[in-house]
Design a binder for these strands. Structure first.
Lengths: 344, 344
DNA sequence: CTGTTAGCGCGTTCAG
DNA sequence: CTGAACGCGCTAACAG
């Protein structure tokens, strides 16, 4: 009754061969313009839709992309996944998700499943793979699958890369505060010193200001002792208070850290942003802080979109030999926690 | 060279017919125990792995499950998705994700893609479908796909449901505070009065205490005026302060609201939890508050696991005619923001 | 330009 | 119990 109609059906209806129809649709073989028209019309009439799945069996590629991402409790990758899917959907591609345990051994299984499903392209998110997996990724290329990664260095000329400009983000946020007349700006780091801090230092130096970083190296308070970076930065600031209490602005190396700063300042009755400005990175908690936190928004949504686009591009125009590398910028989201410096 | 070996290969190797091998593997037709052994051995030897994709073309079902979820910026569903995938992977099923815009019209496209991909089962998350879509879901059943939903009422006897026990959660959290000797417990609601509030009221009454709810109906401060529930609850409490300042405990109808409460209490120099306890629901921001917030953890991870299991169960034992309905419990996560009541 | 002949890898009839 | 035959829906190499 509601049976799906196939190429055969439209071939019968037109007294043609199914393969001719196939060519008319794909445009691969040579078909007369007239029959192409007829086929197109019959397609409309009968409401035919090509079965990509069946087609996948013979071509070896299904209209599906995949994301491989690390198992984490945070769910931080949600915007990436969402925009990746949205972009894929525009091109009528589905999106399969594979989680891998960092340091786990299920990447192998994942790669098997990718192949089995005839996935056309896959993005490996930062944390899902390490350099030791690179050989496997390169081997995966032989199956004709499109590949890219985020936050990884160059792996292969046929693997694209998406990176984030942490340094520029650090620079811009610092510059923003400098332009608000702040001079005494403290950066609260983490033992893992990312490019964000480098950007901060660069900005401070280029404006002739003295960088002050706490929490980067041998502070008595270590983030590894905490399950929460917020509490870490709170305790850190508490301990280093004498050293930094004259600061008119704090930058947390991420929003968790920035929140710890805010908590401590409130406790010290330092008004934000009247007496002191606070800013962070990632833009995760803007809506749950009072005042709302100024933050450099991590371009995850954009990343998802670009990743899918890169895959699609490789799939449709399969030129080989050059890896494109995208460097995505953060975006300053200026909210209530930062303001013009005022002397007291 | 590295060619995938097929049933044909193992048939050749055993001088058998391909279809006999197929039967030996599936156990459907009748095959001698001896040849089954031989086949199993050859499978090991040659490293054969069944191609589920190809098999999907003939059976009409691929070893893939799907989740349909609403496009939202929050990414709250991440734990659900992650555990769903983890469960699916155990059974060698893949997971396809489809986002739909609430009130958008791409659900139709999504259902088409589900069918095209020969998805074996699908979970529709709360917010992705509304009662007006039910006819489409029921029609989808005809394709032999397994279906369940979360936070939806009964739809069809062949569609399972997962629900969350909001009332019990409200009750338990309130009871927890009562057992800490609190008597004056205020519930900060939202215009949408969920079961959480009902549970609160029920608990208060059953302990002979007077429920006090603010923010539920005609308060001058309306959540719709805010993009952030945190700011809403902060302002609300500010305005109603005279009425509730004697409370020894506050319950926010979710963690966003609870954070607004915390912010205001800090500003009023009410010490948490010494002078006043605060608790919330969902357990989203535990690690970024100081003190850490006591909260009823929303069983999203469990939901993901159960949803996948329900699908798998329907797929493998295809009995029809009874819809199972799961009611999942929240879990009290007792942290620093709640403490025994002490008179001042 | 069209149709023929072969598959892709597997499942489900039927005879033998 | 085994094998032969047909089909899932589509693509790709040839001939006509």
């Amino acid at each position: 009754m509601d049976k799906n109609i196939t190429m055969q059906d439209i071939a019968d209806h037109l007294k043609l061969d199914r393969t001719t129809v196939s060519k008319a649709i794909s445009g691969k073989g040579s078909v007369s313009a007239k029959t192409i028209k007829r086929v197109q019309q019959a397609i409309e009439e009968l409401g035919y839709r090509k079965d990509h799945f069946a087609s996948g069996l013979v071509t070896g590629k299904n209209t599906v992309l995949a994301i491989v991402l690390p198992e984490m409790k945070s769910g931080i990758y949600a915007p990436f996944v969402q925009n990746f899917q949205r972009t894929a959907r525009k091109h009528h591609y589905g999106v399969i998700l594979y989680y891998v345990e960092p340091q786990g051994d299920n990447l192998t299984l994942t790669l098997e499943m990718l192949k089995q499903q005839r996935v056309s392209g896959v993005t490996f998110l930062s944390g899902a793979t390490s350099p030791s997996d690179d050989d496997n990724l390169i081997r995966l290329l032989d199956t004709g699958i499109a590949i890219n990664t985020t936050t990884r260095g160059f792996i292969h000329e046929d693997i694209d890369g998406i990176r984030y400009n942490h340094i520029k983000a650090g620079f811009e946020l610092t510059e923003h505060l400098v332009k608000l007349q702040h001079k005494n700006i403290v950066f609260v780091a983490n033992t893992y010193s990312s490019g964000r801090m480098d950007g901060y230092k660069k900005a401070m130096q280029s404006y002739g200001l003295q960088p002050v970083v706490i929490g980067d190296k041998q502070s008595a308070v270590k983030p590894s002792d905490y399950q929460s970076l917020t509490k870490f930065s709170y305790d850190l600031l508490m301990q280093e208070w004498d050293r930094v209490k004259d600061a008119s602005a704090f930058i947390g190396c991420n929003d968790d850290v920035a929140l710890g700063i805010m908590h401590l300042l409130k406790e010290k009755n330092v008004s934000i942003p009247k007496d002191c400005s606070v800013a962070g990175f990632d833009d995760l908690y803007a809506d749950v802080t009072i005042p709302q936190l100024t933050s450099m928004r991590f371009p995850l949504s954009e990343g998802g979109e670009k990743a899918a686009e890169l895959l699609l591009k490789r799939i449709h125009a399969n030129e080989k030999g050059f890896s494109t590398s995208l460097l995505l910028d953060y975006e300053l989201i200026d909210r209530e926690s930062t303001a013009m410096y005022t002397a007291h």
